[in-house]
Write a protein that binds this DNA or RNA. Structure first.
Lengths: 143, 143
DNA sequence: TAGCCTCTGATAAAGCATTACCGATTTGCG
DNA sequence: CGCAAATCGGTAATGCTTTATCAGAGGCTA
């Protein structure tokens, strides 16, 4: 059986208060203020136990390390701010997404992530950065 | 300037023939038949150069290592078969996806991945596997 | 064809996130 | 309260992908 420790409660409370998916490192920095001396290993341990309990689940964001959020009953998606790198929840979904697959393909679920700028003033008033690779060629052409 | 080597052409041809995103390791196994003795380091080198040239781009799939595909002009998405783990292209997109974000959020782009079973007979005739964690509690309840 | 410069293959090393380990501490039941 | 079992913090170790290194082979221009 699991014990109810201060450390584990700190991890869970951090996720509930934030209301958005966080990385283990992100959780660690916040939860440390709730449980001084908290170790990163304990954060990982707590996350695994909370997942086994069904209280927390993993969120995989393309181009970002795994995030964790409190388990949600309803279908939802995520938004990644390209400025502050924070992930937010999007409580909406358009119908027909599962009908996009080619004929003969069966869709079980889908994952949608929006990218852009969140509503934080610090993020709104800043230009984005994204390099576009130039088109070049091999020396003697292709063979 | 870049040379047009047999190895690099093998990597590029592998991606073009497959017509779907592949992992470096996946590319390696196929491209080796086009260029015997091909090293994995060369695959990574070729991919970086092809990306700099604008001929190839990265595809980030949630829950999967980075894939690479030949660069596409048109907007599209991806499908991950949960049986064979292969990624396919989905040449379609529903409108309104970018309107899902909360007020004050600016959407620049989005990433959509479908999960299910592809149309390969070997995949269609096989049950899926996905464990569902049981719900439990701490010993003394929460604090 | 000569010769310079790039590329290759093999492998060691780097980079990172996650996990194992262990002595010390804390929890929960009786 | 008292003890057995679970958990903690700190850190070394692991696992895996990607990169650096280097001697030798190969592509390209003149």
């Amino acid at each position: 059986m699991n014990y109810a420790t201060r450390q584990r409660s700190a991890v869970q409370k951090t996720l509930e208060d934030a209301g958005r998916p966080m990385t283990p490192a992100e959780i660690w920095t916040v939860a440390r203020s709730l449980s001084p001396g908290l170790g990163i290993a304990t954060v990982y341990r707590a996350l695994r136990i909370l997942m086994d309990m069904g209280a927390v689940e993993v969120v995989e964001i393309p181009g970002a390390p795994p995030h964790y959020e409190r388990k949600h009953p309803q279908h939802h998606h995520h938004f990644l701010c390209e400025h502050c790198q924070r992930v937010f929840e999007v409580e909406a979904c358009t119908s027909g997404i599962d009908q996009l697959a080619p004929a003969g393909f069966t869709v079980k679920r889908h994952s949608l992530t929006l990218y852009g700028v969140c509503n934080d003033p610090a993020c709104v008033n800043r230009p984005a950065q994204q390099a576009q690779p130039a088109v070049a060629q091999f020396a003697g052409g292709f063979r």
